[in-house]
Design a protein around this nucleic acid. Structure first.
Lengths: 210, 210
DNA sequence: TAGATTGTTAATCGATTAACAATC
DNA sequence: TAGATTGTTAATCGATTAACAATC
């Protein structure tokens, strides 16, 4: 099988198309064209077709795409046709927000464990999940075969947490701490920085200021 | 003045360099090379120099960059040398997390108002900010000259909120609702989708699965 | 001066857009 | 058949990397 490299921008757009198709499917629409999708999500029709073409032929010339069929295919491509086991480390406000975020469950991400070091929080129950101490993390993560760790601890503690998650055997880490982390090449790392988004906004605003 | 287009990737990296320089400055380091910055944040030295070159000459050949000086310049470029007035709409868990997120204050973003429609939440105080009803939003935003609106309401309510914020006169909107929004061309819109990040992870993991 | 490192140009690489033949 | 829309190729555009002259 020829493996040509897929742009990350394509993956991000697939995720957006997928969410749009959920909406369209709910409306009972059966068939959709690349132009319709493009308009709905704000890209060009050629881009939609190109993105899909990386993975196969999903449409019918002269007709368009079957909504349900295309949606199913995109979910499969994104690895969302099965459940993923996630643990969350750090039950601050952001951790609490993520642990109760419905979007995750909807897309097949199950939060199985929550860890924190604060004695006040250990033992608490969030959506029926008991908050466990960080001490237990490596062991529990290994036992429960957690695949993804989401980190919402302070920047200063993040690397230590990463090392423990890696030892526990996670395959991927989603990091919300604003710090550069080191992981072995076998572990997938993705960083989300909430401030960066605001800063891109203000840069773009720059010219408009007095 | 020649205005050549700056890649968004450059802006995102500037934001990362800036945070790294805060750290380096705290350690009391006076001078840094493009190679050091590159290593610290995980890009190439050429990229660091290229990114900076869009905005001027900040270094000394044979020596490197003065840490404080470069940091100040980047903050200025990013529009972070003055405070920005932000309002937050939607006090769910994510809204609560954002309203108490220290990273914003540190980078010059002041949350001035919080709005929600839930009678249980209206009147509450978060960090001394009273939660106001959405009804009052347009008026209050205009009065307080709020520049940026952050939206953490459900997807179904987001467009309506956007319209009110625009009428109130905000210059930019940071949207956390997973939905495509319409704004006039004068208003800067940026979307943050928390699920997308997890989905890019699982796509990348795809090949490693059984 | 010799060594180091910037700023910048040219070369490479990658992603997007446009165009159109294939085909329903 | 005529009209529509895909899948794909070629052209364009943009961003990254490599190389090096400038210069501290």
């Amino acid at each position: 099988m020829k493996t040509l490299k897929i742009p990350e921008a394509t993956i991000i757009r697939l995720s957006v198309y997928s969410r749009y198709l959920t909406e369209i499917d709910r409306k009972g629409i059966i068939t959709i064209s690349s132009g319709d999708i493009a308009e709905g999500v704000g890209v060009s029709p050629a881009q939609v077709r190109k993105d899909l073409a990386y993975f196969g032929e999903f449409g019918i010339r002269g007709v368009g795409y079957n909504v349900k069929d295309l949606h199913k295919n995109i979910l499969r491509i994104m690895g969302l046709s099965n459940e993923w086991s996630v643990c969350l480390v750090g039950l601050g406000n952001l951790g609490l927000a993520l642990s109760t975020y419905k979007g995750f469950k909807e897309r097949g991400f199950s939060i199985i464990n929550i860890f924190d070091n604060d004695p006040q929080k250990i033992g608490m129950r969030i959506n029926d999940i008991e908050v466990l101490p960080i001490d237990k993390m490596e062991e529990v993560v290994a036992q429960n075969q957690i695949q993804i760790g989401a980190i919402t601890v302070p920047a200063s503690a993040a690397q230590e947490i990463v090392d423990k998650l890696v030892k526990g055997g996670v395959q991927a880490i989603l990091n919300f701490a604003p710090v550069v982390l080191n992981v072995p090449p076998t572990v997938e790392l993705r960083n989300v920085d909430l401030s960066v988004n605001l800063e891109v906004l203000t840069f773009n605003l720059g010219g408009k200021m007095a």
